[in-house]
Write a protein that binds this DNA or RNA. Structure first.
Lengths: 228, 228
DNA sequence: TCGAGTCGAATTGCATACAATTATAATGCG
DNA sequence: CGCATTATAATTGTATGCAATTCGACTCGA
């Protein structure tokens, strides 16, 4: 692995974590100095981040971390609703027993964390959930579909719909994982795709509810500041 | 526009034209010398080509032009059948009169070329066809969907399904363009999506037929060379 | 006081030189 | 004669220096 690869992952992680907030500039010289590297590998990493849609390159001015509007979030959901059911459909006729077992184990661990209801259980569930979807994608056996989704679904943690779920919605999500396993086990692509679609539409609904809530609060704050 | 941008377009064009055949290596030094540039902008262009899936970067060895297998072609069709109907669906409720007129003009010119049946009419039709689809995409108003498709649909000319159409299939394709215009004019997303789907499935069928033909010919040649 | 123009600082874009790595081919050994 | 090993050449990976461009602040004029 080259230095540029490492820098790429470091910067991406910082964007995801919110360490580099939306709208801020990622300076080649600053990062190079911090990581004790020249600007060259930093530049390469930034160009990759540009093509992956994480930052926007403004000629001769810098690399700006992209801002996510509600419209962007909706656009991503629209694409996921198109593509991810296809992942499930393909996986249904291709997945092997061992992979299916692994998915089941992940589902079980998520359910356990869900029941437990600890403090930062959500974060752990999110990690397992990512693993679940990644393995499903691998089972689908379509490198292009995988690449497309990988460039799309990655979203800053602050935007993860997971964190806006009610207790019921979280339980429903766990149920989807289970049902998807049954559909996969039955080799039923239509069923699998349908479950995945429901899974995503549920997530979208939760996100929309959250966005409306934020919108209202924002309006409230705005009007208050206007009054003040 | 920077030098790296120009290099990117030059190399991509050469890959499309078959000037850089699949499997060959694109050397930084060679292109730099030819274009009288240093390796730096060449490198940037190559990295972009890698993320766009045109070449494969082999660490410390070079950038290799990707080879398209029949499986790759099928994968691309599968994705297009998912995504492009959505383009049509979105466009149906968003397109404006002026854009619609422009599409109609393009469709007319393609039909004229088709009737004319000149020697290299196919090439001209292909250009107009690309324009038609690009404008439709613009009318859909989804930058992400556009980016996704742009990175997917570009395919070396030698692979364009257009060139494998029978006369009837070409006429059918023209008819699809017309029907899509009617659907868009009616603002009917379902209709538009359905027409686009047919359009793509027809293209896929033509490509499959062509592939089978090549396969057979290849087998024949192979057996002949075995005999010889 | 406001606006236009100009100058300067900051940042990226590109060229060049060097280091690291890998494939290849020659060579020595079994 | 075949295989492993090593040396070499070719290529990419990285560092550094300079050029080009842009943005912002300051000055000058109305």
């Amino acid at each position: 692995m080259t230095a540029a690869d490492r820098v790429y992952q470091i910067i991406r992680k910082r964007i995801l974590d919110g360490q580099y907030p939306a709208g801020s500039y990622v300076r080649e010289a600053a990062i190079g100095q911090e990581l004790e590297l020249s600007r060259t590998p930093i530049r390469e990493a930034l160009r990759r981040l540009v093509s992956d849609g994480w930052v926007e390159a403004i000629p001769h001015h810098g690399a700006q971390v992209v801002s996510w509007t509600q419209r962007d979030v909706e656009e991503v959901f629209e694409l996921r609703v198109l593509l991810e059911p296809q992942v499930a459909r393909r996986a249904a006729t291709r997945i092997e027993r061992s992979q299916l077992d692994k998915l089941e184990s992940l589902a079980m661990r998520m359910e356990a964390l869900c029941r437990e209801g600890r403090e930062n259980a959500l974060e752990e569930i999110a990690v397992l959930n990512d693993d679940y979807h990644a393995r499903l994608m691998a089972a689908a056996g379509s490198p292009r579909l995988q690449r497309l989704l990988e460039t799309i679904v990655q979203v800053p943690v602050s935007r993860r719909s997971f964190h806006h779920y009610t207790r019921d919605e979280l339980a429903g999500s766990m149920h989807h994982h289970r049902e998807l396993l049954r559909a996969l086990g039955a080799g039923d692509g239509d069923w699998a795709a349908s479950v995945m679609r429901s899974h995503l539409l549920a997530a979208r609904a939760a996100q929309l509810r959250f966005a409306a809530c934020v919108e209202e609060a924002g309006a409230g704050v705005a009007s208050m500041s206007r009054r003040g």
